[in-house]
Amino acid sequence: MAYDHPRGESSGDAALVALAAGGSEHAFRTLYRAYVRPVYWLAHGLVGNPADAEEVTQETFLVAWRKLPGLDLAGDSLLPWLATVCRFQAANRIRKQKRDREHTAGAADENLVATVDVEQQVVDGALAEAILREVEGLGELDRAIFRLCAVDGYAYQAAADELGVTQGVVRNRLSRIRTRLRTVVKEST
């Protein structure tokens, strides 16, 4: 059965990246919709709270918009590059918050200040990288199923309809993908 990339491209994100780099807001919005949730999850794991995670996510996509013209996409997916940008943005935010806390230590209520364990950040970052590598190693259909169900929140039947496969195929493959990712998580912790 022939399978088309969920965004209609058979070559992954490269065509969308090229269009976005050329100024296409539509192409950039398509990439944003495809990756905003995993970038947010990664940001939340790094900074530890929803408000900062939203800021880091927005900063990540702002950097992406500015840097896409010079980007040479190494693989089929923009996600590994976005994850790297996200980690840098999260680290910048954490450093800024630490400086702000140090300058206002006497005035700030320390109970309201979220502290971030640097060691945990490294573990979370390494875990996120391991998961991203594992997802990138999946076949095209499995990556699409993962993206639709785990990232975009599609129900099994909706994903099956989108991909032109049966609900059973989606359910079984997603179960195998989750088992595979649980193994990665166990090995990384």
Score class of each variant (00 low, 15 high):
Ala130Asn: 03
Gly45Gln: 05
Thr57Gly: 05
Arg171Gln: 13
His5Leu: 12
Val56Gln: 02
Lys98Cys: 10
Ala51Asn: 11
Gln97Ser: 11
Ala21Glu: 02
Lys186Leu: 14
Asp100Val: 10
Val113Lys: 05
Ala114Met: 11
Thr60Gly: 00
Arg133Tyr: 09
Glu136Phe: 05
Asp100Gly: 08
Ser10Pro: 06
Arg33Gln: 15
Ala51Ile: 10
Ala155Cys: 09
Ala14Glu: 09
Ser77Pro: 03
Gly23Tyr: 03
Leu127Asn: 04
Leu138Gln: 05
Arg101Asn: 10
Ala74Trp: 08
Arg66Leu: 09
Val170His: 02
Gly48Asp: 01
Thr189Ser: 12
Glu140Thr: 11
Val47Asn: 00
Arg93Ile: 02
Tyr156Met: 08
Arg180Gln: 10
Lys67Val: 07
Leu79Ile: 05
Val184Trp: 01
Ala107Pro: 01
Asp100His: 15
Asp72Glu: 14
Tyr40Lys: 04
Leu42Cys: 10
Trp81Phe: 05
Lys67Tyr: 08
Arg173Lys: 12
Pro38Ala: 05
Leu132Glu: 14
Phe88Ala: 07
Arg171Met: 09
Leu68Gly: 02
Arg87Phe: 00
Gly75Pro: 03
Cys86Pro: 04
Tyr32Ser: 03
Arg178Phe: 07
Arg180Cys: 06
Glu140His: 13
Arg29Leu: 09
Val151Lys: 02
Asp72Trp: 10
Glu110Leu: 14
Tyr156Thr: 13
Thr166Asn: 04
Ile145His: 02
Ser175Asp: 14
Thr189Asn: 12
Phe88Thr: 07
Ala90Ile: 02
Asp117Ser: 06
Gly75Phe: 07
Cys149His: 01
Asp52Arg: 06
Ala150Met: 11
Gln89Met: 09
Asp152Pro: 04
Thr115Trp: 10
His26Thr: 12
Arg95Ile: 05
Tyr154Met: 10
Tyr35Trp: 06
Glu59Met: 10
Arg147Val: 09
Asp109Ala: 08
Leu73Asp: 01
Val116Trp: 01
Val184His: 03
His5Tyr: 14
Lys186Val: 15
Ala27Asn: 04
Leu141Arg: 12
Ala15Leu: 09
Val118His: 10
Glu102Cys: 08
Tyr35Cys: 00
Arg176Trp: 07
Gly164Glu: 08
Pro6Val: 13
Val165Phe: 02
Val184Cys: 08
Thr115Gly: 11
Trp41Pro: 00
Ile94His: 04
Ala114Lys: 13
Met1Cys: 09
Tyr154Ile: 06
Glu54Tyr: 05
